[in-house]
């Protein structure tokens, strides 16, 4: 056997045997998202409000000085919000848009801040689309491919369409209803061999259709 083939074989085994992302969540996020429409009916971006679980909220607040104990203002939380947004970049903000089979890219987030509410941190930020999309059907997936973060759509009003044209409708799938996992299975998560897509099984998928 030629050395190059051996190396190839080795890399393959390595990828299969140990590159497996046996990830597991450490952070839980309850998500609500708004799709922002321009007057011409195109989608310009997504506005998220992500509520962190209590353990992570407590952890993130560690060492942050406040004027009043137990009360965190937006200003006091600004450096943390900055860190959050910067860290999220590496993960493409866990937000994946697709319109007519094409992926929609996002610009850097704007209007971001952290809110401290009932002992939990809520991260607000807007992701503008690189180019506004005018389409009949757009899908938006929110998930962490490495499954370090477990996303869940909020029970109440997880999706809102802001300024959408008449007749636009949305539907959403959660990982715990059969449709979503069947969907994810059918897609590229296992077959592509890219185990990074493991988390896709846990994707929350929002689909918007306009007439």
């Amino acid at each position: 056997m030629k050395p190059s083939r051996l190396i190839g074989l080795l890399l393959l085994c390595f990828a299969l045997g140990s590159g497996v992302a046996h990830a597991h969540p450490h952070v839980w996020i309850t998500s609500t998202s708004e799709l922002i429409y321009a007057p011409d009916g195109s989608i310009t971006g997504v506005r998220h409000a992500w509520t962190f679980d209590d353990m992570f909220s407590t952890y993130a607040l560690e060492g942050i000085e406040t004027k009043k104990k137990g009360v965190y203002t937006h200003e006091e939380l600004a450096p943390l919000a900055q860190t959050n947004i910067e860290s999220l970049k590496e993960f493409a903000y866990f937000t994946f848009a697709k319109a007519d089979g094409k992926k929609g890219g996002f610009l850097e987030p704007v209007d971001y801040f952290l809110e401290y509410k009932d002992g939990l941190l809520v991260l607000h930020f807007t992701l503008p689309l690189k180019t506004p999309i005018k389409t009949r059907e757009l899908s938006l997936e929110i998930f962490d491919p490495t499954f370090f973060v477990d996303f869940k759509l909020a029970d109440k009003d997880p999706v809102r369409l802001v300024g959408a044209p008449e007749g636009c409708k949305f539907s959403f799938q959660q990982p715990n209803d059969g449709a979503a996992s069947a969907q994810a299975m059918g897609e590229d998560n296992f077959l592509s061999g890219g185990n990074a897509n493991f988390g896709a099984m846990y994707a929350n998928k929002i689909t918007v259709t306009c007439p």
Binding site: L10, G17, V20, F190
Partner: peptide
């Protein structure tokens, strides 16, 4: 190198037995 490959394969199987990888 072949032995490494073999052990890696065994390792994968072990992972499957113990942890059940997605594969």
């Amino acid at each position: 190198a072949l032995a490494v490959a073999a052990v890696l394969a065994i390792d994968s199987v072990m992972h499957v037995l113990a942890a059940q990888t997605p594969f």
